[in-house]
Design a protein around this nucleic acid. Structure first.
Lengths: 210, 210
DNA sequence: AAATTAATGTAACCCTTGTTACACAAATTA
DNA sequence: TAATTTGTGTAACAAGGGTTACATTAATTT
């Protein structure tokens, strides 16, 4: 049994299911920055995230991007779930935000386990629920917040999922995630620095404790 | 057996399940405009929509609203699903867009049926998938479109779910759904009228065929 | 070290959207 | 019918944020 599987999913799944996952799943490591799936691609297996963080993005026809949310350990991709079941194309893009470890589950098992294990069903439902709530959070941000508030919220999220609490990105990269321009981000970051909320450096930003 | 249940869900569910739904479900009619659930309320049963349309809204702390999507016949509310299972509060507000007919399912049955009927599981998964996609559509609109494009898209959606293809709303009501101001909507509607896309009247708008 | 590339700072400008104010018309109520 | 309320049209202005342009500084390459 892979120890990290037990550590992260032991409280969720009964032993029989854990053993099955351990048997049929494939352990996988992905390096930071790796594109794990693109819009329009078919999904072949379902990931259970063991460590690290995955960035989920939406893209429009012009290739403009928007960050939707991050997945962390114990999470799975809700999109993948029905993509697998219905053989549908992915509607989102997934990129490793940090180095990450995953357990990949073959799609045939999902349907089988849904009938067999109550804990699996609950996990799947819970995942959907979490993802829907994260989408609502995203909608709240873009619909109700101004760009400076969105930026601060983004920096806090980014710092949370990063290893050391710093945001190791250029202004341009931040601008892509928030679907705005580099100049706007530079302007607002400077404003946040003047307010004493952050510290700016070349290639990274640090959040200051309040 | 309620005929409309068979008509709308007969192709989805096996007969045993249909009969159970018919037995334990409560038939319910709601008039246009009725608030079916508010943010923060607990959900007691799960609705299967038989006819009419339901408007799903998000609200921020100041009471500002934003239309997320419409539910139509054959749909259910994905939010409700895990709200029921996890005894969680609703994150959204639901208002009858037109007169609607529903079958209300007691929450205990949901868990039971998830283990018992494959068609029920598939329906639930499919619902989640559809709702996630509708949320993505909403995000696309507010993130990538300008207000005039969002407005036109909104009018087309509204016309689709309405009885007679007209949008029976005041400019103020449209403004609430799109989370903007009445003046902005009046301005853009007038622009769309000048482009020959719509016809403006007091209290309603008609879409012109292209 | 010099040249080049990448990241950031900042000014000036413009467009979209939001706000305020008010006129006018249609519907409703007195 | 007169008075009031509700819905719409429009002008003028403000603010947020997107764009272009260019300077400056740090890192990388030659």
């Amino acid at each position: 049994m892979i120890q990290e599987l037990k550590d992260n999913y032991g409280h969720l799944f009964e032993n029989n299911l854990l053993n099955e996952i351990n048997q049929v799943g494939t352990f996988k490591e992905v390096p930071e920055g790796a594109v794990m799936i693109n819009i329009g691609e078919y999904v072949k297996s379902m990931p259970l995230l063991i460590s690290g963080a995955i960035k989920i993005l939406r893209e429009d026809n012009d290739g403009d991007e928007l960050l939707l949310y991050f997945l962390e350990k114990g999470d799975t991709c809700a999109m993948t779930l029905t993509c697998c079941l219905g053989q549908k194309k992915s509607e989102i893009k997934a990129v490793a935000e940090t180095d990450a470890k995953l357990m990949m589950i073959p799609i045939q098992k999902m349907e089988e386990w849904s009938g067999k294990y109550k804990s699996w069903r609950n996990f799947v439902f819970e995942s959907y629920h979490n993802r829907l709530n994260e989408m609502l959070e995203t909608i709240d941000s873009i619909a109700f917040l101004k760009m400076d508030e969105r930026l601060l919220k983004y920096l806090i999220e980014k710092a949370r999922v990063s290893e050391d609490g710093t945001i190791r990105n250029t202004h341009q990269e931040i601008a892509y995630d928030l679907h705005t321009s580099r100049v706007v981000i530079s302007r607002l970051l400077k404003k946040l620095e003047n307010l004493g909320k952050i510290e700016l450096h070349r290639n990274y930003v640090t959040l200051l404790k309040i």
